[in-house]
Amino acid sequence: MATADGASHLLGLRSIVRSNLEYQHYWTDLRLLNTFADLNINAQGDPLTRPMIHGRPPDQLYNPEPASTTESSSQQKPTPEMEYVLPVHLDEKLTLRTWAAVFDALPTPPGDNYRKKRIVVAVISGDSTVVYYIMHDGIVKPRQN
């Protein structure tokens, strides 16, 4: 879909987001995703529509039902879930087709089947600000408070 030149700029975007996640937001277990084989061992090694990042945030990003407050305060926090991050540029024109292709490539989340696929969209602007949005592949239960 993307030309070789465009792809190199997408890789540039990803390097910005990667360093931002690592150094500004202290994400861990960061892994770069380039091909379908990076998402699923059994898949073919075709390149992904867009290069992405897989990583673990320091705190759980989105949880419609926060752990019941009575017990959580003193006890150890559960490990935050791994997230998929999609770097995009502010001046880009993104289409529904792009989003669909990104979501189609992702594996279905484990557990209950009403959990939707989720990505973190990292929007880069010219002054190095990265604005993060959480995007679900469908309607999800809203967060409390």
Binding site: S19, N20, Y23, Q24, D127, S128, T129
Partner: peptide, 17 residues
Amino acid sequence: WGKGSLSRSEPTWLNRE
């Protein structure tokens, strides 16, 4: 002028780290 690439505005990343 500008913005610290890992900060909100003023470059403070080194201090924070």
